[in-house]
Simulated scan of single mutants.
Amino acid sequence: MRIIAIAACEFSRTLSGAAWNPVSRWRERRAPILRLTASDGITGIGEGWSRQQDIAAFFERLRLVAPLLLGADPLDPMGLSGGLPAAAGWAGAAVASAIDMALWDMRAKREGRSLHAALGGTRRVVPVYASGGLYVDGKGPEALATEMAGYVAQGFTGVKMKIGALSFAEDHARVRIVRQAIGPRTELFVDAVNQLDRDGALLWSRRLADLGVAGLQAPLPFDDIEGMAMLQRQGSVPVIASEAEFRPEVFQCLLREKAVGMLQFCVGLCGGPSRALALIAEAAAHGVTATPQCHATAVLQAASLHLGGAHPNAGRVEFHMFHDHLHDLLPPGMRAPRAGCLSVDGVTGLGIAPEALDAPRAPDTGEIRTLWSMAA
């Protein structure tokens, strides 16, 4: 069996711009998706992380390495994706991750198994948290509390919200009202989107502990590992980082320096399922839980959920309620939580049929365009 065709696709969806976080106002969401087709007709799909304003860099890198994939054996994901020429920067890492994901999807389908099983996992249900709580124009704390309580009513037992854009008093009030709305048994995480300084992060950590918050994501700039180590040591809630990292040596440094209480990664950037499994195991060796991050389409969401079922050290998986792009393509068990968990059982591969990406879509749900394709 050989890879005979590659297609580069782009998902895009226009958003209102009313929702924002401390660094981004969401007027559009774009995501790179690829398809690999083998000589036996099986197609694997993968998605890579991307910088929204520089998504072209992903496709330029993919076009460069695509000829190396044609004619290759797709049943060796680790060997094939790991054998691609090295490239500095996020685009090379994201392309390698998407290729690895598509290869694993293809392999699992050929074996007639779900991706998590093909990866060696045995967990059929995966703990998740509902990710939302963005800032929205005209939306006050009460409406935010209603939003987050609504996720609990849907069956989630963990939620995440944003902080870091308003004054400490205003944001603290937002966290407090959410805690009251979701009750004491629901896990609450907050994401500062790298906007705090060391003193502010330490204050937040101690105040968040008083509200029973389970973790503080991205409290400091990505490169302030020393500051995160201080915060993990002196603060009162676990530090969660680092979703936009792709360099193995940085993940290793975060663990070695005890800078995180939860190691976060994006399977569409860190090296795909192959490398993500290794990261989860490395975190376990340091006594740290790993948590997959996701804020793109259903392809990346499905891969993140399967990673959650592939290793016992994978903690809660992010399930995004704002970036819910293409979520209608997910199997029902991967959309509707029961007791805080989603099911990764009873599917083959990722659980998303490649042909479903070609189905007509309503204008407000986004579109998928094939940018170019190559065939052997």
Rank of each mutant, 00 (worst) to 15 (best):
A5T: 14
T14H: 13
T14R: 07
G17F: 12
W20Q: 14
R29T: 06
R35N: 05
L36T: 01
I45M: 09
E47A: 12
G48D: 03
W49L: 13
Q52S: 06
A57F: 06
V65P: 01
A66L: 02
L68F: 03
L75K: 11
A86I: 04
A87Q: 13
G92V: 00
V95M: 12
G132M: 05
V136Y: 11
A143D: 02
G158Y: 04
K160A: 01
M161D: 00
K162P: 06
R176H: 12
R185V: 08
E187K: 14
R206K: 14
R207M: 05
D210H: 05
G212P: 12
A218R: 15
M228I: 13
V237Y: 14
P238N: 11
I240Q: 09
V250P: 08
F251Y: 08
C253S: 05
C253K: 10
C266D: 10
G271C: 10
L277G: 12
I280A: 10
A281H: 12
E282C: 02
V288F: 15
T291V: 05
P292R: 01
Q301T: 14
A302F: 07
A314Q: 02
A314N: 05
G315F: 00
M321R: 12
H323N: 11
C341V: 07
C341M: 12
T348I: 09
A353Y: 00
E355L: 06
A356M: 06
L357S: 06
D364H: 15
T370N: 12
